[in-house]
Design a protein around this nucleic acid. Structure first.
Lengths: 296, 296
DNA sequence: GTGCACGACTGTCCAGGACAAACACAGCAA
DNA sequence: TTGCTGTGTTTGTCCTGGACAGTCGTGCAC
């Protein structure tokens, strides 16, 4: 439609850089976009769909050389089916999505509010909000949810979480600095970790997303943080995780722990001096371990 | 330091694309970075400072051809001194920054909370939060504030605003959809507009930042929005504002108004069918005008 | 099975050329 | 003076094709 998309649009929509797009074309013959009168690349809707699938699979650990030559069908066969490990969430998901799609979406917000009022923050976060967010992300990735619906969900959820966190009394435990590295713009899991830790009486300082490493070092020093908690989404370039964490570890004082979590850490090798949170509750466990060490 | 920065780092740190950096070097002879053993560009700290000044002045409407050949001193002379139009804010600013710099920064949050509790949301937003945010932005641009301090401020402010907005009863007036276009990631002013409009009983749906145009169209239709409110920061590429707004205007139903505001709209020509909010209270006026039209 | 070396893979960088859209400005008409 | 229009300049983005370093996987020797 619209006669197709220019390369800059594809770069933004897929997260694959222009240079990579051009070199794939040169090396693998895909994508092979049409050209406009001036010789500029014009990608089709089909190109974009296929590229998005490829990117998604790359985020899960596949290598481009294997994926790019594959057709849409072969790609679809590789896709991991959405996790159904949380049956209660899975069955509630469709109802929730229906509420979210209503004009105004107030029903979805009210439903979440009621659920959050009914249970302690920590348990509702691990038991409902985190699996729900993952399910919404999967639905979006599978094309069952529009971008604007996902945006609305994110905004709604981050509002509710921040409200719930601010309603807690200020923490008195160890100070924990939360943020993401440069180019990582997914902050929801950061908020969920903060909710868990604040519920355990930690003192949390959330810098939001996209903080460069030198600034993180300054902030840790400024606030006397005992822990630096970082979140990596699946879309974060994997090759950069190791080096960046190592650089941080070298430059941070030994008295400051580093906790790393999020989907991007799933396929990551263990690194010296870095605690990995594969699941959300791991953060609570790490905090408890800190307290135990201190007492002992 | 660290032997200098590669081009990808400079691109992120200054917001100037690689291609532009290279073409400036070719055309104007600046920046003229050193090269590493492999021939890759290595920019100095001085290059980065000068490029940031240039970018800042470009965001204010200057053209590159005039700026790039200038030295740091000449650039500094061009800089508009920080606005002092709000003397009460200006004098309070230093105290606030001192609070913000304390470990934990709880003093800053408590101060803001007290001020917000003392006054109605609308007046505290226009009278304090907006000028304060602008002052913080200026302080950051002038290098008087670290990135991590600015991040903490943004997170704190957006938390307080969202909390205050959620505390209001749900609106019953016209539905207003708030968001920013793709690549625009500054959402604070969106929250401030939402606060003002919700205080006037509008029904607000905030999609957050970075929503592509087709998705905006879908969302307007879905929620039956009467108004689409967009915010553009000064860093938003100016050349794109006009075409994007025009495209939206053409594709949106005539019954849906478009309001555009933020620092990026300052130097923008008037466009047919687009209401420009130069100041925050303009949004309130536009809402009032809507009500009047309806009644009349 | 374990470790190492080699080779393939992959993204990012380089140079230099081209063009269209935006802009500034001069010249002219009202 | 004001407003418009045409022309030349400015500016960012796109193009091609080449090169290289770091990562990853494979296969061989032990």
């Amino acid at each position: 439609m619209h006669n197709g998309y220019p390369i800059a649009f594809i770069e933004r929509a897929t997260g694959i850089s222009r240079e990579t797009l051009r070199i794939w074309e040169r090396r693998y013959g895909f994508p092979a976009p049409a050209r406009d009168a001036q010789g500029d690349r014009i990608y089709s809707q089909g190109d974009m769909d296929r590229l998005r699938r490829i990117k998604r699979l790359m985020d899960q650990g596949h290598r481009p050389g294997k994926l790019v030559p594959l057709g849409v069908k072969a790609l679809a066969r590789l896709e991991v089916p959405a996790r159904t490990e949380m049956p209660e969430v899975a069955e509630g998901l469709e109802d929730f999505l229906t509420l979210l799609r209503r004009p105004g979406a107030e029903g979805a917000r009210d439903w979440l509010r009621r659920r959050m009022a009914r249970e302690p923050l920590a348990s509702v976060t691990t038991g409902l909000l985190e699996p729900l967010t993952r399910a919404v992300g999967d639905a979006w990735a599978a094309g069952r949810l529009c971008v604007h619906e996902e945006h609305l969900y994110s905004e709604m959820m981050s509002r509710l979480l921040r409200g719930a966190i601010d309603a807690l009394p200020p923490g008195t435990g160890p100070t924990i600095l939360l943020t993401t590295l440069s180019e990582e713009r997914h902050g929801l899991s950061l908020l969920m970790v903060e909710a868990l830790l604040r519920a355990e009486d930690a003192r949390c300082i959330n810098l939001g997303v996209d903080t460069p490493i030198p600034e993180i070092l300054l902030a840790v020093e400024r606030h006397g943080a005992r822990v630096l908690a970082l979140s990596f989404s699946r879309a974060f370039p994997r090759r950069r995780i190791g080096p960046q964490l190592t650089a941080l570890r070298e430059q941070l004082p030994a008295g400051c722990q580093i906790w790393a979590g999020g989907g991007g850490m799933a396929h990551c090798k263990p690194l010296p001096g870095i605690q990995v949170c594969h699941e959300l509750p791991d953060a609570t466990a790490l905090l408890a371990a800190m307290g135990a060490t201190e007492v002992g």
